[in-house]
Design a protein around this nucleic acid. Structure first.
Length: 734
RNA sequence: GCGCGCUUAGCUCAGCUGGUUAGAGCACCUCGUUUACACCGAGGGGGUCGAGGGUUCGAAUCCUUCAGCGCGCACCA
């Protein structure tokens, strides 16, 4: 019986206990240096790059982060084992508005102070400290999840190198005429006291009242609105050109007094007006509606701002002056009633624009801001990726974004998301990039009187003042694929070696925010595509398909379940039975089931290693196979092929399924059971031992990208004298 | 209004270019402690693949209509 007991088994507990191994294993990997592609044995290998979507430094990682870490780590480990020079570059995102408002909240709650009480510099120090602490937590969590990223290249969207990239990008695009400063109607977040982009708006359905009235008794047309208070800023009434009810009035101008405010209203005809809506006549408020501003531009109408940044009325007599919009509304409605001008007040459902971050109402108002012009024609100097049709060099940003996504350039997976992408691109308007917040990249523009100076470095002479605004966080995120690789130094070896990157893996919810902006910035500034594939994952929901949120109490904390069931079990549960791009339901039971699988593997290894397989010469092939031997070897070969094909086609769920089924229900259930008899037969014993150990080591390799910790732990127990220092760089089986 | 997606076993979902009796995990039922594992093994029940129509030798898979659910974008005067 002695022969069944070996040294190996003594070092393997009866049931796999992840907490005994994971930390040591991660340290082993880090010390090996192989996270850094410069240290990989095969320096002539083809590069393979993923730049990590930087998590916001606003808190701790949630299970959604756990999902992206898992998916990217699988792709990275798979490609590394295939001998590629594999780089997974990690980083974190300063997330300007999100981080600043988080610190503002803490400041208010804990000290009852506002940021102005501290001043710009002291406040920024607070934000910086918060971001640093948050960053450290995130890094530890990434390591906990087993992320095999190259920490020596770690980047932060607001560090010095990225700042140089941002200033350079701004300067170049300014010189190309793609960045301009203009007074336009923007989305003003009254609560957050900043502009935001169109994509940061969330529409919330609310009940509202739609009023139908005339400006004055003499005015011939009634109009409808939910916002009577803005009507003090009207400069026209627009009707449809073919609306016979009103043709007689078109072109006429009326001077009148509306609630104490003198107005000059011109009646115009514009195609954009719907005859059927309301009275078929639209009161045009050029200063406080994007649509109206466009009409005003077409008809050369004057713009009159009547609401300011505090969301208060700035015209009129004491009755409305300085009042909040909602208060002014009531006053004006009351006035309309008294004057007998109000014809109707109906209850309707209305979509109100709110700011994604603060939840505050968006007040459209005119403001001098910085924009990226998406329609302006320019010369694309170096078209390295072959974006433009042969022979052409002029383009615009919208067209570039359109051209970049197609077979041979950028491929979006799942494919149907490319439709969503094109739809967004085609409807894109100029992107407002300046923000009135303190935390972020300061706009590299200085003013002295009427003079404006834009450059990467400040002007040398006295008296210049820098623009107080910062840039939209997505401006710097848009540079992420190349600002992390040494750009603006285009001869930097990382940039030359690893760009364009291979895969961008991220959630489909930030397709516009981020993916599209990266394509815009990268094609424009480098003439290259940023990545070859965009691999989108879905949202992680709870077992009942509900969104996870603190208030619902249904949050699964990756660290907590990782400690209970093992990180490998969590990782496997996240990809098992989950198709790309679709939302997934994650129940704790599922993770538990995957823990059982890990334990199964553990015991398979214990069984094999306790059968003296450490004395077996695995360099020679087994001979005279039994039926069971042939069957398992063939099945293993099929598993290798299908797993490889599935991963290459981004079907990680199928790959996981394939390994799971083979390991448990073919290898363990059938072959190991058969081997028990074969091991008793002296003529078959050695062959069987060889096959067992061969299958085990192959399973470890196939499974390693998915379950790196347990596979490495077992690998370290294998008897091969010729094995690699870590399983991480073993050769992927063929 | 425009667009996208989903509807397959009790639950959560796979099913890649149409091809043998439609799969997995969990749950359920029966039996079982044997060189690893009860976090296990052997066996089992359970689906007219949302509904109708069509293409095809053959459809969960392709086309079409409809219904329900979810999401995105736009409008919202």
């Amino acid at each position: 019986m002695d022969s069944y007991i070996s040294i190996s088994i003594i070092r393997m507990e009866k049931s796999y206990d992840s907490n005994l191994h994971e930390k040591d294993i991660y340290r082993l990997w880090e010390e090996s240096g192989f996270f850094n592609p410069d240290n990989l044995p095969n320096q002539s290998g083809v590069p393979y790059t993923i730049i990590m979507p930087p998590p916001n430094v606003t808190g701790v990682l949630h299970v959604g982060h756990a999902l992206f870490i898992t998916i990217q780590d699988i792709l990275i480990r798979f490609n590394r084992m295939q001998g590629k020079r594999t780089l997974w570059l990690p980083g974190t995102d300063h997330a300007a508005i999100a981080t600043q408002s988080k610190v503002e909240k803490i400041l208010d709650k804990e000290e009852g102070k506002r940021k102005q009480d501290l001043g710009r510099e002291a406040f920024l120090k607070r934000v910086h400290d918060f971001a640093q602490a948050s960053h450290d937590t995130i890094v530890n969590q990434l390591k906990f999840m087993g992320a095999s990223c190259d920490w020596s290249r770690e980047a932060y969207t607001l560090d010095e190198k990225r700042n140089v990239a941002v200033r350079t990008a701004f300067k170049r695009m300014y010189d190309m005429g793609l960045i301009y400063r203009g007074n336009r109607v923007i989305n003003w977040d009254v609560k957050g006291q900043t502009t935001i982009s169109d994509d940061e708006i969330v529409y919330v359905e609310r009940p509202a009242k739609m009023y139908t009235f005339r400006y004055s008794k003499d005015f011939p047309i009634a109009i409808s609105t939910t916002r009577p208070e803005t009507k003090v800023g009207d400069t026209a009434v627009a009707v449809h050109p073919e609306d016979k009810r009103y043709t007689q009035y078109v072109g006429k101008e009326y001077a009148l007094e509306f609630c104490g405010v003198p107005l000059t209203i011109k009646i115009i005809a514009d195609e954009s007006v719907e005859k059927e809506f309301g009275t078929g006549a639209l009161g045009v408020t050029p200063a406080h509606s994007t649509i109206d501003a466009e009409i005003a531009e077409r008809h050369k109408l004057p713009t009159k701002q009547v609401i300011d940044e505090r969301g208060r009325i700035i015209v009129g007599g004491e009755n409305i002056l300085n009042k909040k919009t909602t208060e002014a509304r009531e006053i004006i409605v009351e006035w309309l009633k008294q004057m007998g001008l109000l014809e109707k007040g109906e209850d309707i459902q209305q979509n109100v624009a709110t700011a994604e971050r603060t939840g505050g109402i968006i007040e459209p108002l005119p403001k001098l801001q910085w924009f990226i012009d998406v329609n302006k024609e320019f010369e694309l100097e170096k078209d390295k990726s072959g974006l433009l049709p042969f022979g052409t060099t002029t383009t615009n940003l919208k067209q570039l974004m359109d051209l970049a996504v197609k077979p041979g350039l950028i491929e979006i997976i799942p494919e149907h998301f490319s439709k969503t992408y094109f739809h967004w691109v085609h409807n894109l308007r100029d992107w407002c990039i300046s923000r009135q917040i303190w935390y972020g990249h300061r706009i590299p523009v200085w003013y002295k009187g009427d003079a404006l100076y834009c450059n990467v470095t400040p002007p040398q002479d006295e008296g210049w003042e820098q623009d107080p605004d910062t840039l939209d966080t997505w401006f710097s995120s848009g540079l992420w694929s190349f600002s992390t690789l040494g750009w603006p130094d285009e001869s930097a070896s990382d940039f030359l070696t690893y760009h364009p990157t291979d895969v961008l893996e991220t959630g489909h919810d930030i397709l516009f925010f981020w993916v599209a902006r990266m394509i815009l910035m990268t094609t424009c500034l480098t003439g290259q595509i940023p990545f070859k594939k965009v691999f989108l994952h879905g949202m992680v929901r709870d077992a009942n398909r509900q969104k996870m949120s603190k208030s619902k109490g249904n949050i699964i904390d990756p660290l907590e379940v990782g400690k209970t069931y093992g990180t490998d079990a969590l990782r496997f549960a996240l990809v098992f039975n989950t198709a790309p791009g679709t939302d997934m339901a994650l129940a704790e039971d599922k993770i538990k089931g995957m823990k059982h699988f890990a334990n199964k593997l553990w015991n398979i290894a214990r069984f094999i290693l306790s059968n003296n397989t450490n004395e077996i010469d695995i360099t020679t092939k087994p001979e005279s196979l039994t039926n069971e031997d042939s069957a398992i070897l063939q099945s293993l070969q099929e598993t290798i092929t299908s797993t490889t094909n599935h991963i290459e086609a981004f079907r990680l769920h199928e790959a996981a399924q394939s390994i799971y089924q083979f390991t448990w229900h073919t290898f363990a259930d059938i072959y190991i059971e058969a081997s028990k008899a074969q091991l008793q037969d002296e003529t078959q014993k050695e062959n069987t031992q060889k096959i067992l150990i061969y299958c085990l080591s192959t399973i470890l390799k196939l499974l390693h990208p998915f379950m790196p910790f347990i596979t490495e732990t077992i690998y370290q127990q294998l008897p091969f004298p010729s094995k690699q220092k870590t399983l991480m760089i073993e050769k992927w089986p063929l």
